[in-house]
Amino acid sequence: MHLVPADRAGRRTIDGHRVCDAIAAIGDTGRLRTWADRFSLLADANRLALLLALHRTGPLAVSDLAVATGMNDPAVSQALRLLRAAGVVAGEKEGRVVRYRVVDPEVGALLGHC
């Protein structure tokens, strides 16, 4: 049981080799936190709807996303602000219009399965 942290090494296990495999599967706690944060972003139905629309259609403006999702413009803007801060989407300004797109490839891969 070489992967068992010292603070847990004295605890009894039934399938020690599987415990090591489970620890390896869990991996780095920082990466685990990153994925938990991603999943929390996807757990909101409105944010998920926005991401699916952007993933499948490409860049869209706030007003177009509002029509597509049935949300109001301020709610779309707030959701995009959270997604942008998390590095999941980015906006590109063309004159007065900002079009958003999914830029996180791992989130994009997840959306491909929805």
Score class of each variant (00 low, 15 high):
M1A: 15
H2T: 06
P5K: 00
P5A: 03
P5I: 04
D7I: 06
R8M: 14
R12E: 13
I14C: 14
I14D: 15
G16F: 03
I23E: 11
I23Y: 04
I26M: 15
D28P: 05
T29R: 02
T29G: 11
R31Y: 03
R31S: 10
L32V: 09
L32S: 09
R33I: 11
W35N: 12
W35M: 15
W35C: 14
D37E: 13
S40K: 01
N46G: 13
L48V: 02
L51G: 03
L52A: 07
L54D: 01
L54Q: 00
L54S: 01
R56E: 12
R56V: 03
T57P: 08
T57V: 07
L60A: 14
V62Q: 04
S63L: 10
S63C: 11
A66E: 08
T69W: 02
T69Q: 02
N72A: 10
P74G: 04
A75G: 12
A79W: 00
A79E: 00
L83V: 05
A85R: 03
A85H: 09
A85M: 13
A85L: 14
A86G: 08
G91Q: 01
G91E: 03
K93V: 12
K93F: 07
R96L: 11
V97Q: 13
V98E: 13
R101V: 04
V103A: 04
V103R: 02
D104A: 07
E106C: 09
E106N: 04
A109W: 07
G112P: 09
H113R: 11
